[in-house]
Simulated assay, not measured.
Amino acid sequence: MLDEKANLNGKVAVLLGGGFGIGAAASLGLAQTGVDIAIFDKDVAGMAETKAHVEALGRRCVTMVGDVLSVDDVRKFYEMVGQEFDRLDIVVNVAGGVKQRDFLQGTDAEDAEDIRRNFGYVIQSIRLAVPLIERASRGGSIINFTTIEAYRGAAGFSVYAGAKAANANLRRALAVEFGTRNIRINEVTPDTTPSRGNMSALKPDLLKSMEDAPIEDIEASMAMYIPRGAAASPEDLADTVVFLASDLSRSITGINIHVDGGTSAAFGFINWPGGGYCPAPVGESIKKLFPGATV
Rank of each mutant, 00 (worst) to 15 (best):
A136L: 07
I115M: 09
D67P: 10
R181Q: 15
Y78L: 03
A150T: 05
G162M: 09
F157V: 06
Y78K: 04
L88M: 01
R116W: 03
A175F: 06
R196Q: 13
C61R: 10
G197P: 00
M64V: 00
G97D: 07
S141P: 07
R116T: 14
L57H: 06
Y160I: 05
L69T: 12
K164T: 03
Y121G: 06
K164Q: 12
N186K: 05
L174T: 10
E110D: 13
N182P: 04
D111K: 10
L69K: 13
I123Y: 04
G140Q: 06
E134C: 03
V188W: 05
S137N: 15
R60Y: 06
N198H: 03
L69G: 14
G153T: 11
R59F: 03
K76T: 06
D102F: 07
I142N: 08
S141H: 08
V94D: 10
M64E: 08
G120W: 04
K99L: 15
L170V: 09
V71C: 01
R117A: 13
Y160P: 07
R196Y: 06
R172F: 01
C61K: 10
E149M: 11
T189S: 15
G106I: 00
S195I: 05
T63Y: 00
E149D: 15
I185F: 02
G66P: 09
R116L: 12
I123W: 09
M80Q: 14
E134I: 00
T189W: 04
F85R: 02
N169H: 13
S195A: 13
Q124P: 01
V159T: 14
R196W: 01
L69I: 10
D67E: 13
P131A: 07
G179T: 03
D73S: 12
R117D: 09
L57P: 00
D89V: 03
R196V: 08
G106A: 04
K164S: 02
D114L: 15
V62A: 11
D67L: 11
G58N: 05
A95T: 00
R101D: 15
V159R: 04
N144W: 06
D114C: 09
E110Q: 14
